[in-house]
């Protein structure tokens, strides 16, 4: 028994090492004074300073934030509507919409990017930050819808009935009872959508026009051309940002009141 446990623990720790070593090494070397070598040449913050002075990079960050906020807003609004519609309003063709809604979650991302690009080409919308935003909203909508719907499904349907029984109109029942109970899931999924939008490369790659460079596009072109300590520094910052975003998303989702 204990030997088996030790073996399991060893294997698990090895997995964690595999998962974390590259990231830790990466961050560690962002403080390395040497530009080229993989050996330690002393501590420096100069790569971070260089990043702060890179105007193209800062513009890309701004673009990413813009796209992230706009697409999250759209995706959250539509996603909540879709979730409520699918869960509470019976209508014909519900199964079909459900399938279509889940599709972006399962098809390869490359395909998602390609099809959106074709679509914009066909309707003659020039590729820009707007098309990127639409693309991001498209793949984030199902994520919001799925999370919110899961929460909605767990809600006791008699709660809305109770509100109605106590004199609330259908809208009041939704507004005063259902929506507050959904709020943690909505905020959590919005935060998740925002994170995904900030990180997305592939769909952006296919739907971004010239000049519409987001942070991941910038990182990609940096990574392709060379290995530099600046990228390490940038990566370190990105790791920190996604970790804090996800942490807050988890906190939000955990805070939701449960009744089961």
């Amino acid at each position: 028994m204990s030997r088996r446990r030790a073996w399991l623990l060893g294997a698990s720790l090895a997995d964690l090492l595999f998962l974390y070593a590259p990231i830790v090494v990466l961050i560690f070397f962002s403080f390395n004074a040497s530009r080229l070598s993989a050996s330690w040449r002393g501590f420096t913050l100069q790569w971070y300073r260089l990043l702060a002075e890179d105007h193209a990079l800062l513009a890309a960050v701004q673009n990413s934030l813009l796209v992230g906020l706009a697409s999250t807003f759209v995706a959250t609004l539509l996603g909540v509507c879709a979730a409520v519609g699918l869960e509470r309003v019976p209508f014909k063709g519900r199964k079909l919409v459900e399938g279509a809604l889940l599709l972006p979650l399962v098809i390869p991302e490359v395909m998602m990017g390609v099809s959106l690009m074709l679509f914009f080409a066909l309707v003659k919308v020039p590729l820009s930050l707007v098309t990127v935003t639409i693309g991001h909203a498209a793949f984030n909508l199902p994520i919001v819808a799925v999370i919110v719907r899961a929460r909605l499904r767990k809600l006791d349907p008699t709660l809305e009935e109770a509100a109605r029984d106590l004199g609330a109109t259908a809208w009041q029942a939704f507004r005063r009872v259902t929506l507050p109970l959904l709020m943690p899931a909505i905020l959590g999924s919005a935060l998740m959508a925002f994170t995904i939008s900030l990180d997305d490369f592939i769909v952006t790659f296919f739907t971004a026009g010239p000049g519409a460079t987001t942070l991941p596009l910038k990182v990609y072109s940096m990574v392709r051309s060379s290995v530099t300590p600046e990228i390490n520094a940038l990566s370190a910052i990105l790791v920190l940002v996604s970790m804090s975003l996800i942490a807050s998303s988890l906190v939000l989702q955990r805070k939701s009141p449960t009744q089961d």
């Binding site: 964690l16 998962l19 974390y20 070593a21 590259p22 990231i23 090494v25 990466l26 070397f29 994170t195 900030l198 990180d199 490369f201 991941p216 990182v219 990609y220 990574v223 290995v227 990228i231 390490n232 990566s235 990105l238 790791v239 996604s242 970790m243 975003l245 996800i246």
Partner: peptide, 20 residues
């Protein structure tokens, strides 16, 4: 702990292996 790397930018994670 398992999820954190997953939520890290994919490009960054890939770059980490280039670096390694």
């Amino acid at each position: 702990l398992v999820m954190i790397p997953f939520w890290t930018n994919f490009l960054v994670r890939t770059y980490a292996w280039i670096f390694m």
